[in-house]
Simulated assay, not measured.
Amino acid sequence: MKFGKKGKLSLRYVRSFQILDRIGPVAYRVALPLALAGVHDVFHVSMLRKYIPDPTYIFDYDPLQLQKNLTYIEEPVQIVERKDQPLRNQTLPLVKLVWNNHAISEAPSELEEEMRIKYP
Rank of each mutant, 00 (worst) to 15 (best):
V95Y: 05
A35L: 10
Q18K: 12
K6R: 08
T56K: 12
L97H: 07
E110I: 12
R116P: 00
L32Q: 04
E113C: 05
A103G: 12
G7F: 10
Y13E: 09
G7D: 15
A107D: 14
R49Y: 06
K2A: 13
D21C: 11
I73F: 11
Y61P: 00
N69D: 15
F17T: 09
E75F: 07
Q78L: 09
K96S: 01
K96T: 01
D54I: 06
N89G: 13
F17W: 09
P86Y: 04
L111T: 15
P53M: 01
P53D: 08
H40M: 01
K50C: 06
S46D: 14
K50T: 12
Q65I: 10
N69P: 00
S105D: 09
D60V: 14
E114Y: 09
K118P: 02
G38M: 02
K2D: 15
I52C: 06
P25S: 12
L97S: 08
N101G: 01
E110L: 14
L94T: 02
E106I: 00
Y119T: 09
E114T: 11
S105W: 03
V26S: 15
V45A: 13
M47K: 11
S10P: 00
D62M: 04
D62N: 06
A31S: 11
L36Q: 05
M1A: 09
P120V: 06
T56W: 03
Y51K: 04
Y51G: 02
A27Q: 13
